[in-house]
Each structure stands twice: as C-alpha cells, then as structure tokens.
C-alpha cells in the first residue's frame, strides 16, 4: 500500500532523513519507534505532504505522491493525525469532524463515518456542540483521530497519540486505535513512545535512529530489550 524508497529530507540545511526506505502492506499495523528528534515525525510529514522531501520516492497505492501538496494526498485516502493535533479551536467538535470530510471522495460517506466516530468515541457524541478550545487533552486527541477517520481514509498515520495524556486516557486511545484496526481493517502507521502498548497491536516495527531505519522486526523477532537499548 505504501512504499518508501531512499527518502532524504531537510530542515533548511540540516539533513533529517537519510535514505529512509520502508513499506506498509494493506491491513497491517506498523509501529515506528526511535528516540525523539531522530526523524520519525519528519518522515510522517514528508509522507502526508506537510513537509515535502528533497529526494526519494513515496508510492501510495502504486502512485508516486512525493512532493504533492497535502490536500492531494488526503484525497487519495491517506490521513495524518499530527502530534500537535492542530484542531480548529474556535469551532465545535461537530464542525471539526465535518471538516474532516472535506475531501471530495469523503463527502458521500459523511453520515456513516460520523456514526462510526461516535461509536468509537461516545464521549465526542456527548460533546458534539462544545468548542474545541474547552476540551481536555484526551478529548482533543479523540477529535483529532475522529477528524482523520472522517476523510474516508485507507491508511491512518498517527503521530504520538498518547503524548501528554493520563494513564487511563492513554489506554482508551490505544483501545480506540486497535478497535479501528479490527472493525475497519484499517491500515495503520503509528509513531509512539509507549513501546509496550504500541507493540501489543503491531504486526511489524521499524526503529529509526539518526534519520535512518536502524532495523526492522516482525512477529516473534520483536524484542522489547532490543528496542529500548536503541534509545541509548
């Protein structure tokens, strides 16, 4: 579904990604680990078009998308849930969710997707008319994920969904993501610092260090110690 090859990306003159290659197959949950500041978020932003890469190829459903503007990538069915959430804070929960269905192909599915978001996050149904500036951190995270689901996406890229949340809320968010995967057979690429939680739901993992993929493991090859060691 997603195939990335030899991706290089820069912040001004500083090279952040160095020849990153990875792939995500349909129906998989892939976790991307690695210390902070080593390029995980930059990789997601390069894929979704927020920060186009300098060199390399990103193929999504067989089409080259590297360097396309973000809105054209969303229209192809790839949703990115930013770590910073970037909600429309002066709008209600419902208005935010409706804007999630902005891409043309998502408009006919608005009703179904909205029901699904409320099924995953019943709390959002209760707060549908509340302004997003008044939500708690966990609720705002739910809106961000819900808004991504509204875009009728086939690949969900989630950047550190549990960051800054209480332990209980972290569990709720991970449960929701697992539920989305199981019920909709959603393909998911997740960046996370909560290694244990993310491991429980993933088929395969990549570890990123210094802008490169340090290693890839799947199924029984995955060892928590090996991942944790890579952080130091």
């Amino acid at each position: 579904m997603l195939a990335i090859k030899d991706l290089d990306s820069y912040y001004a003159d500083l090279q952040v990604l160095r020849g990153v290659s990875l792939h995500v197959e349909e129906g998989e949950v892939i976790a991307l680990f690695g210390p902070n500041g080593h390029g995980k978020s930059t990789l997601l932003k390069a894929i979704c078009g927020l920060q186009p890469p300098k060199r390399g190829s990103i193929q999504f459903k067989g089409e080259e998308i590297a360097g396309l503007p973000a809105h054209q990538i969303v229209e192809r069915g790839l949703a990115y849930i930013p770590e910073e959430r970037h909600l429309f804070t002066d709008m209600t929960v419902l208005e935010n969710l409706y804007l999630g269905a902005y891409p043309r192909h998502a408009r006919s599915a608005v009703k179904r997707n909205l029901e699904y978001v409320f099924h995953i996050f019943p709390r959002l149904a209760e707060r549908r008319n509340q302004l997003c500036s008044t939500l708690s951190g966990g609720e705002a995270r739910m809106v961000a994920i819900g808004r991504g689901l509204m875009s009728e996406t086939s690949l969900l890229m989630v950047d550190e969904p549990s960051i800054g949340l209480s332990p209980g809320m972290k569990l709720a968010v991970f449960d929701a993501i697992r539920q989305i995967h199981q019920e909709r057979n959603m393909t998911i690429l997740i960046v996370e610092q909560e290694i244990q939680h993310a491991l429980e739901m993933s088929n395969r993992i990549y570890l990123m260090k210094k802008g490169q993929i340090a290693f890839e493991r799947k199924g029984e090859e995955i060892q928590v110690e090996e991942i944790e060691k890579a952080y130091f």
Binding site: C48, G49, L50, A70, H71, V74, E75, A79, Y80, I81, P82, E84, R85, H86, L87, F88, T89, D90, M91, L99, G100, Y102, P103, A106, R147, G148, S151
Partner: peptide, 15 residues
C-alpha cells in the same frame, strides 16, 4: 475559517 484557525490543521483535512 478553518485556515484562519490553523493552517496545518486545514492542510491535514485536505483543504
């Protein structure tokens, strides 16, 4: 209004 409130937010929803 969405762009006024958050440019990156607007980008990720496909505006």
């Amino acid at each position: 209004r969405a762009v006024a409130q958050s440019v990156p937010g607007a980008q990720v929803v496909g505006i």
